[in-house]
Structures are given as structure tokens and as C-alpha cells.
């Protein structure tokens, strides 16, 4: 009887110390797991596997190419929301090197990264939109690929904003709404 009571009291006390619910037996994202060779619980997708709803058949949308040739059109109509969203993406992922205006003078370049070409070069102004998609997706020269960081839809939004940036650097007063022109001219003085 005495033994039973002791066991009961001990088990009640010790349950208070167990942290089984705090650290449960499942793997968290990117946790350490020595079972796998690379020591990570998060597994890469096995080669040639297609996740449900990730068939990515639309080559125009997912590769920026049709029959191996760079596309010259956007896969969907460009909207104001898309450009605004693209601006957000550009300022997060691209501006660090390419600069907020696309001139190629971002902060990382100022700290010693080899400068990228200005997005306002004639060559890049004439380049098809598929070229930008290809560069963001697969990288270019010393620029790393961004496919794993920026979704295809976001990449197209960023390209729409790049086009807007290019237009902004090559517009004249005639492109401005007549009502706004006067405002701009007085602001200059």
C-alpha cells in the first residue's frame, strides 16, 4: 500500500515535469534531422515528380518561352494592380542591386557587387518580356536564379513594373495629362 501511494504521488509530480506536449514527436519545417544525409527534416522534391496542381504546362506562363523562343507578350493582360504588386516585388528582390529606378546602382552594388547593366539601355528596352522572365527564373551571369524565391505570377508582375520603369525614363512632357503638365512645370521652378 505504501509503495502504491509513493508511486502514485511520484507519477503525479513527474508528469508536471514532462515536456512531451511542448516538444512533440514530429518534424518542424527546416528542423535538424540526422536520419537524412543532408541533416535536414525538409526534403527536396524528388526529381521528375509533379505535385498535384503543379503540372506547369503553360510554357508561356512558366518558362517565358513558346517552342523554345522567348515570348514577346505577357501571358495575362497587364493591370494597374499587377504593376503595383510588381513594384513591391521589384523593390524587395531587385532593387538591392538594380536600384529603385533600375539604373543599376543599388545598395549592394555600392558596396562592391559588380554593377548590372541599366534596365534603361536600348538593348534591354528592346528585349522581349520573355528575356526578363528567363533571367529572373534561371539567373544571368553572376546573378543567381530567383525561381525558388519569386513565384511565376510575381515574376510577370515585376516585369510589368520594369516596363513601367523603362517608360518612365523615356517620356516627355507630351506624355503627361494636360491637366498635370502645368503642375509639373511649376514644380520644376
Amino acid at each position: 500500500m505504501k509503495l502504491l501511494v509513493t508511486a502514485l504521488v511520484l507519477s503525479v509530480i513527474s508528469t508536471g515535469c514532462r515536456k512531451g506536449m511542448v516538444n512533440q514527436q514530429y518534424l518542424k519545417p527546416l528542423a535538424e534531422e540526422e536520419f537524412f544525409k543532408d541533416g535536414s527534416a525538409s526534403r527536396p522534391i524528388p526529381p521528375h515528380t509533379v505535385a498535384r496542381s503543379h503540372l506547369n504546362e503553360d510554357a508561356h506562363f512558366f518558362e517565358g518561352k513558346i517552342d523554345g523562343r522567348l515570348v514577346t507578350t505577357f501571358p495575362a493582360p497587364v493591370t494597374r494592380e499587377m504593376i503595383a504588386h510588381g513594384r513591391e516585388g521589384f523593390d524587395i528582390y531587385c532593387a538591392v542591386c538594380h536600384g529603385r529606378t533600375g539604373a543599376g546602382d543599388g545598395m549592394i552594388v555600392q558596396r562592391g557587387f559588380p554593377p548590372p547593366p541599366s534596365l534603361h539601355e536600348e538593348r534591354l528596352r528592346q528585349a522581349p518580356v520573355g528575356h526578363f522572365f528567363d533571367v529572373i527564373t534561371n539567373g544571368y551571369g553572376i546573378m543567381y536564379p530567383y525561381a525558388s524565391r519569386v513565384t511565376a505570377a510575381d515574376r510577370w508582375a515585376i516585369i510589368a513594373y520594369i516596363r513601367a520603369l523603362q517608360l518612365s525614363q523615356h517620356s516627355t512632357l507630351d506624355d503627361v495629362e494636360p491637366a498635370e503638365r502645368e503642375h509639373l512645370q511649376t514644380a520644376e521652378k
Binding site: 519545417p29 524587395i92 557587387f113 559588380p114 553572376i142 525558388s148
Partner: peptide, 30 residues
């Protein structure tokens, strides 16, 4: 920006830690 490295914070429960590739994007040169 926070999201340059913590890319999934707006879509996922997990904010995401940058892969080594993200570090090397700049540190392959700098």
C-alpha cells in the same frame, strides 16, 4: 526588406529561413 530572405512570410505559416543560395546571391561576390 525582410521578405528578401524570409520569402514565405506572406503565404505560409512559416516565415522561412533563407537557403544558403540566398546568402550566396551576394556573398559569391562580396
Amino acid at each position: 526588406d525582410c521578405r528578401y530572405c524570409h520569402t514565405s512570410v506572406e503565404q505560409s505559416s512559416f516565415a522561412g529561413l533563407p537557403s544558403t543560395e540566398t546568402c550566396m546571391t551576394c556573398h559569391s561576390q562580396i
